[in-house]
């Protein structure tokens, strides 16, 4: 197990090295630069050159890269051009919001997707199955920002059931020891604050969950359909086991194997989707900070954000692989 983890962490090094080069080149290939963005369209070339010199952008690319890399290994991504604060601090402050949102979305996707996928498989070929398959196709194809605005329009603006934006009521004065607002309310005994945070979380989480939910429904359906035809399910039936035992021990456990892998891969979709969702709902997480950073050509923020996301993605999938090993003894790492 330890060897497996160490090996995966070592594999991270070439991935990150390659990614950082791509990233570095890509950010600098964006039209306009931070100086232009800072000074506006009418800036004189002299002023632009002066700012660029301040930021070190006038030096050769390879020199900039070496300097960036040297700092990045110490988790120093430089100061954000938007706020002047170190990028790592800005992200640390905003990460809990994004994690809270991503976890909420993942919970929705898993808790709704797996039962629906199972139901579709069990009702294979019926109108219910077709309806679920069509709905999941819609879920994958509708863009997040469209769905997000639609949800906001219906449930926040028209019906007024839920807040339109933000993470908490702006008038609330509550403490945030962890930065996870729902958890903070529970920790400080302020359950109203938890509830408030939860209502702010619902719409963005649903919008963000749409793609993973649809993928999980389809994957679960296909996987259950496969497993239902397996010989060992027939063996379980032949033993006269109760339907609940057959489903739990012999159908679901096996059909969850491919679903687990897909859930891990969906984390990438969640983190990327957070950029759009947080922007629509003015949800103060790293996604929104990143979106603002792109507009401002905030190089340090963009670079730091993407690297951190990449590391999280690899780590999450490593955890998924470990879980997979627990579920399937055949791939267990000794």
């Amino acid at each position: 197990m330890l060897r497996f983890v160490v090996r995966r962490l070592l594999q991270l090094i070439p991935i990150l090295l390659g990614l950082s080069i791509l990233l570095f080149a890509w950010v600098r290939a964006l039209p306009g630069g931070p100086a232009q963005a800072l000074l506006g369209e009418r800036a004189t070339p002299e002023a632009v050159a002066q700012i660029e010199a301040q930021l070190g952008l006038d030096r050769p690319l390879w020199e900039q890269y070496v300097q960036f890399l040297g700092r990045a290994v110490r988790l120093d991504f430089g100061a954000s051009l938007q706020t002047g604060q170190p990028v790592i601090e800005e992200m640390a402050r905003r990460f809990p919001a994004t994690i809270e949102l991503a976890v909420a979305a993942l919970l929705i996707a898993v808790a709704v997707g797996i039962p629906l996928g199972y139901l579709a498989a069990r009702r294979y070929g019926t109108w219910l199955d077709s309806a679920l398959v069509s709905a999941s196709l819609l879920g994958v194809t509708v863009p997040i920002f469209f769905l997000a605005y639609l949800l906001k329009l219906v449930f926040a603006v028209q019906l007024g059931w839920l807040p339109t934006a933000g993470r908490a009521d702006a008038r609330a004065r509550t403490e945030h020891p962890t930065g996870f607002y729902v958890l903070d309310g529970i920790l400080t005994g302020d359950l109203n604050a938890s509830w408030d945070a939860l209502t702010h979380l619902i719409l963005p989480a649903i919008a963000l969950a749409s793609i993973p939910l649809a993928v999980i429904v389809r994957m679960t359906r296909a996987s259950v359909l496969n497993v239902l035809h397996e010989d060992y399910v027939r063996t379980a039936e032949a033993k006269g086991l109760l339907p609940g035992t057959v489903v739990r021990r012999h159908v679901l456990r096996n059909s969850m194997l491919p679903v687990t892998t897909v859930i891990g891969l969906q984390m990438g979709v969640l983190l990327a989707g957070a950029v759009l969702t947080e922007t629509v709902f003015a949800f103060a997480g790293v996604g929104k900070f990143m979106a603002d950073g792109i507009v401002q050509r905030d190089f340090p923020t963009i670079q730091g954000f993407i690297l951190v996301i990449a590391v999280s993605y690899v780590l999450i999938n490593m955890i998924v692989d470990i879980i997979y090993g627990l579920l399937d003894p055949r791939v267990r790492v000794s």
């Binding site: 397996e230 010989d231 060992y232 027939r234 063996t235 379980a236 039936e237 032949a238 033993k239 006269g240 086991l241 109760l242 021990r249 012999h250 456990r253 096996n254 194997l257 579920l327 399937d328 003894p329 055949r330």
Partner: peptide, 25 residues
Amino acid sequence: QMRDVRGRDVAMIFQDPMTSLNPVV
């Protein structure tokens, strides 16, 4: 009642023991 009969009164041995046992149990 058929589930009570299966495994208790009548039991079956299948052809392929590679696929007839659940691999994760």
